[in-house]
Design a protein around this nucleic acid. Structure first.
Lengths: 241, 241
DNA sequence: TCAAGTTGTCTATTATCATAGACAACTTCA
DNA sequence: TGAAGTTGTCTATGATAATAGACAACTTGA
């Protein structure tokens, strides 16, 4: 294990990332004991204090738990999230035995940019409702989602969402009985400051960015979204037909 | 724009990430001029020297180019990468007008872990060939791929791959005329040190991790892989049927 | 009970990060 | 030509990161 200096990432943070990767890919199973601080310091070739700082950061995020005199133990797991044409957050979370929740952060009206207009089959500048929301599993925030809908077709959508807290129910309120995912685009980046705060995520953590558009049974665009998932809390499953 | 202290990520690095996000999502188009250093320092509320360090890092990675007296300009773009049941690296890169290349890093034999055995429909401990390779578009490394195949069915696969430098050609060499993607699993994490060096990627950058298994026309598993893509160089397109 | 191994806390030192100000070198445009 | 705006380079200072060593507090197992 060789680390990199002057990359703009503190050494303790690199060690923390390394241990977290070990947890994520199963090298350290949940409940299992990590190697001792001295041994970790040895493998990464850093001072024990640097390892302690890394472990403290992981402990604060709830990934590990230190027991004095005994050792440091692994705590957590990832949420499996299928990407298919019928994608419903509440169903996916519920299937994992966890309690899904949604919450409105902000809603406002704004004109369509050229790209949003193209996705929604509208003209540039057409009035849109922008809905910013956070979705949680139990009490853990999973993703921040920004959705855009036509303000003409869905007037007052922001207020409706504030009540029903679900995109499926919002669409049903306007008479949309069924819909499906038309396109999905996945990439990854580093979380920005405002998303970090809302996802309860440290700066510098990766997020999975999903751009998608939902259409009705006739293929007519309903809503287009950009969702940012805390990468450390989910794994996407792509279904290949 | 508010940044975060003592997150283990240096301020200049946070600014660099912010600017890079701006480039990635099109706020700053290729060829366009960035705001001046003083203006950037102002929006992020940091010292101009901190901004200069951020820009220097981006310039070193080739994302921007500074012109004295004039300004700093944007350089690069992302590779569009469809995830479908028929996924061939060379075809995807070639379609973008770039030259695909593959290169063997390492090949060795190792026994199947329980998980690898399950994916490949073998028994735990069965002999596998592990092939580590890097794939490039023009001269830019795009991903590092670790592939596992049955050593019984594909004897000497490592040597074959070293010659043909393509998984499709390797399989053809053993009489596999066609194959398709059976499962795909996407997540993201921070790059580890050895991948960082091979992808020519700075530490702390995100990578998209794709776990997948290819099967023949009868649905029999051929090869299972874990590929790590430099997130800043690709975007995945998920096809929803 | 006791030795070995673990995490927790303290002091101290050096290198890097971030800020601050001043001015040079260069480009752009009126 | 000249003024305004840009990037490049220098010096200086305080805060934070990382190292190093010593020892306390606690757990485990022989």
């Amino acid at each position: 294990m060789s680390l990199q200096e002057s990359s703009g990432v503190a050494l303790w943070r690199q060690v923390a990332d390394g241990i977290e990767r070990g947890i994520a890919d199963g090298r350290f199973a949940a409940g299992e004991k990590l190697p001792g601080e001295i041994e970790i310091a040895d493998t990464y070739r850093v001072n024990r204090h640097t390892v302690r700082r890394a472990l403290a950061a992981l402990a604060e995020r709830g990934l590990v738990r230190a027991e004095r005199g005994s050792g440091t133990y692994v705590e957590a797991q990832r949420l499996a999230y299928p990407l298919r044409s019928r994608t419903r957050f509440s169903e996916i979370v519920g299937a994992g035995g966890r309690e899904p929740r949604g919450q409105l952060i902000d809603a406002s009206e704004e004109p369509a940019t050229r790209e949003l207009a193209r996705e929604l089959g509208l003209k540039t500048g057409a009035p849109l409702v922008r809905i910013e929301s956070v979705r949680l599993a139990d009490r853990t925030p999973i993703c921040i989602s920004t959705s855009w809908l036509s303000a003409d077709r869905f007037p007052g959508a922001g207020a409706v969402f504030a009540n029903v807290r679900s995109m499926t129910k919002l669409l049903a309120h306007y008479g949309v009985r069924d819909y499906r995912r038309a396109s999905t685009r996945v990439t990854a980046t580093i979380v920005d400051a405002s998303d970090a705060a809302r996802l309860d995520l440290a700066l510098g953590r990766p997020v999975l960015v999903v751009d998608s558009t939902d259409v009705d049974t006739d293929g007519k665009p309903l809503v287009t979204k950009r969702a940012r998932f805390a990468a450390e809390r989910v794994e996407f499953l792509v279904e290949n037909s």
